[in-house]
């Protein structure tokens, strides 16, 4: 009985008892969720265009951030360093197409997946060799002061990060749904051979999509790297994107966003109100559990495209 009260009554009384704090938890959850969406987005882009789960996405985030910090450490001004990093990521996209994807056209997705595992190790090695393994502070001049509004503590950096992610996500959503190139990307994702037959240049599409994924990786790298410093662990934020992907579907940009928000808010509320019951640190597995529960009801994800196979 006590247990039932602790699980089903006490947390809600707690929420009702301090609505301001609950509001803060929700806001923090939303802001965090947007950051998850940002990471998930990189996966979605590549999955959409090549039907492959890019194991190297996390490492691409790391690699972009490392390059940016490395350039800044050598005295390059921030804006130029960002520009140069974007160029590096585009160059990387060309290299990936030239040396990896081109040779794997129309192979099974699992083969492409394996190739991205290889890519992750290569990028890791190259990144470490070029820029070293030390933790590097990343300061691109985003303000970081905290201020209180009606008892809710907000942080300028978190707000800025969320706003940039929101803009980026909106642009990408439009890009995918309303432009010719977006359609071409979806076509390639659907059927390589058919895409070729209508004259979609696979190479160009892949270069574009990996470049965009690299750019999204850079933004994610800046936002996450500014918190923790740029270091190897940055690649592990990919783990935070997985439940978002399961929830949102691998092919849906809006899914990545809404999925990120649900996971962000859900795990914060779970951790704060139910975490103490279970000894804390429940949010990581809770995120997966939440995603799996959704999966049972919507196997294609929140906004995933429903495909009815002819049986």
């Amino acid at each position: 009985m006590d247990l039932l009260t602790a699980v089903f009554v006490a947390p809600f009384l707690d929420m009702a008892g301090s609505p301001v704090f609950l509001a803060e938890v929700v806001i923090v959850g939303v802001l965090t969720g947007v950051m998850y969406s940002l990471v998930a987005l990189g996966f979605v882009l590549i999955f959409k265009a090549s039907g492959v789960f890019n194991f190297a996405q996390g490492v691409m985030v790391l690699f972009a951030a490392l390059t940016l910090v490395g350039l800044m450490e050598r005295g390059v001004p921030v804006w130029l360093a960002i520009l140069m990093t974007i160029l590096v990521m585009i160059g990387l996209a060309f290299a990936i197409e030239r040396f990896m994807l081109r040779h794997l056209v129309n192979q099974e997705p699992i083969i492409l997946f394996m190739a991205t595992i290889g890519l992750a190790f290569v990028l890791e090695g190259v990144g470490e060799t070029l820029w070293g393994s030390n933790v590097k502070a990343l300061d691109v001049g985003i303000p970081n002061a905290s201020f209180e509004v009606g008892g809710i503590l907000l942080n300028e950096f978190d707000l800025f990060a969320a706003a940039s992610c929101a803009v980026l996500v909106a642009v990408l959503a439009v890009f995918f749904h309303y432009t010719t190139i977006g359609r071409a990307l979806r076509a390639v994702a659907d059927d390589h051979q058919a895409a070729l037959s209508v004259g979609i240049p696979l190479k160009t599409i892949w270069v574009i999509v990996w470049s965009v994924a690299g750019f999204v990786g850079l933004v994610a790298g800046i936002m996450w790297g500014a918190r923790s410093g740029v270091q190897f662990s940055l690649s592990l934020i990919a783990l935070k994107a997985l439940p978002v992907l399961i929830l949102g579907g691998f092919t849906s940009v809006p899914g990545a966003i809404v999925g990120g928000l649900i996971i962000g808010v859900g795990e914060k509320i779970a951790e704060i109100y139910w975490g103490p019951l279970l000894g804390g640190a429940i949010e990581n597995w809770f995120a997966y559990m939440l995603a799996l529960v959704f999966l049972v009801f919507r196997p294609q994800g929140l906004f995933g495209e429903r495909i009815i196979e002819r049986v």
């Binding site: 959850g29 996450w224 704060i272």
Partner: peptide, 9 residues
């Protein structure tokens, strides 16, 4: 990398 709930607590 993500400790928001810890620090909310």
């Amino acid at each position: 990398q993500e400790q928001k709930s810890t620090w909310l607590q």
